[in-house]
C-alpha cells in the first residue's frame, strides 16, 4: 500500500531532479553576460523600440552604446535630454546635435497632381507601387495611401484632406520609420529650424513635370540665381537646398514659378 504512493513520488521526484540539474548546467552554459551599465542606459532610452537608431529596439541600442559601437546621442527620439543622461552613466561629454524633423517633400495633392488611373487594391503604398508605379501621373509623387501614417509610432503623421500626409512637428521624433517605408522616398529628415523646402522629388524634364503636376520643380534654375548664399543647386532637373548654407530668407520661394519651393508655416 505505502509502495503505491512512494514509488510514483520517488520516480517523479528523481525525474524532476535530473531535469533540474540539466537545466542548471544549461543555464550556466547559456548565461547571458551583461554589463551592469546596460540596464541603466536602457532605462534612460524612451523604450519605443522604433528602430530609428538603426538597432533592433532599445535593448540592442543600450548594449551598443555601452560597448561603444553607437554614440551616446544616437537615439533620435530621446534627443538631447536622453543623450545627456546616457552620457552621465558612461561618464562622457555628449555633443549636442540639432534635432531633426520629418518633412513630406511633395506638394502634389489631388488639386495639383492628376491621377492616370484608379487604384482599388490593398490600402498600402508599397502594394500600390507594384501596379505600374502607383496611380498618379507623376512617377515621383506621393501615392497618398498612408503607409507612413501606419509606420509612425508616435502619432506624428496624419492623412491630410487633400491626400498628402501631414507632419505634426510637436510629436515627430525623427526616428525615420516613415522615410524608410515610403516607396517614393518623399519623406526626409531635415533640421528643425529649416522652414524652406523644395517640395518636389521629380527628376523628370520640365515639360513632363508641367504636364503631370502644377506644383512640381521644373529645373528652371531661377532659384539658384536669386539665392544670396548660393545654397541651391539643380541636379537632374531638381533643385536642392544645402541646409548648412540656407539662411531662410525666402527669396527662392518668391521667385519659384511653379511654387515648388515653399516656406513652411508653423
Amino acid at each position: 500500500m505505502i509502495n503505491a504512493i512512494l514509488i510514483p513520488v520517488v520516480i517523479l521526484g528523481v525525474m524532476g531532479l535530473i531535469f533540474g540539474a540539466g537545466l542548471a548546467v544549461a543555464a550556466k552554459k547559456f548565461e547571458v553576460k551583461q554589463d551592469e551599465r546596460i540596464p541603466l542606459v536602457r532605462a534612460e532610452l524612451p523604450g519605443a523600440n522604433c528602430g530609428g537608431c538603426g538597432y533592433p529596439g532599445c535593448d540592442a541600442m543600450a548594449e551598443a552604446i555601452v560597448k561603444g559601437e553607437a554614440p551616446a546621442n544616437g537615439c533620435p527620439v530621446g534627443g538631447a535630454k536622453v543623450a545627456e543622461a546616457v552620457g552621465k552613466i558612461l561618464g562622457e561629454e555628449v555633443s549636442e546635435e540639432e534635432p531633426k524633423v520629418a518633412s513630406v517633400l511633395c506638394s502634389g495633392d489631388c488639386d495639383h497632381a492628376p491621377r492616370r488611373a484608379e487604384y482599388y487594391g490593398l490600402k498600402d503604398c508599397n502594394e500600390a507601387v507594384i501596379a505600374n508605379g502607383g496611380p498618379k501621373d507623376c512617377r515621383f509623387g506621393c501615392i497618398g495611401l498612408g503607409s507612413c501614417v501606419n509606420a509612425c509610432m508616435f502619432d506624428a503623421l496624419s492623412m491630410g484632406e487633400k491626400g498628402l500626409p501631414v507632419v505634426n512637428i510637436e510629436n515627430c521624433t525623427a526616428c525615420g520609420k516613415c522615410a524608410a517605408t515610403c516607396p517614393k522616398s518623399i519623406i526626409d529628415l531635415i533640421p528643425k529650424s529649416q522652414v524652406i523646402h523644395v517640395n518636389c522629388q521629380s527628376k523628370e524634364k520640365g515639360k513632363i513635370v508641367r504636364s503631370s503636376c502644377s506644383v512640381g520643380c521644373i529645373g528652371c534654375k531661377a532659384c539658384t540665381k536669386v539665392c544670396p548664399e548660393e545654397a541651391i543647386t539643380v541636379t537632374d532637373n531638381l533643385a536642392k537646398i544645402d541646409y548648412e548654407k540656407c539662411v531662410q530668407c525666402g527669396a527662392c520661394v518668391e521667385k519659384c514659378p511653379t511654387g515648388a519651393i515653399v516656406k513652411e508655416i508653423r
Partner: peptide
C-alpha cells in the same frame, strides 16, 4: 504529469 515535466524542462 511525467510528460508535462519533460515538456516544461
Amino acid at each position: 504529469i511525467a510528460f508535462i515535466l519533460v515538456i516544461a524542462a
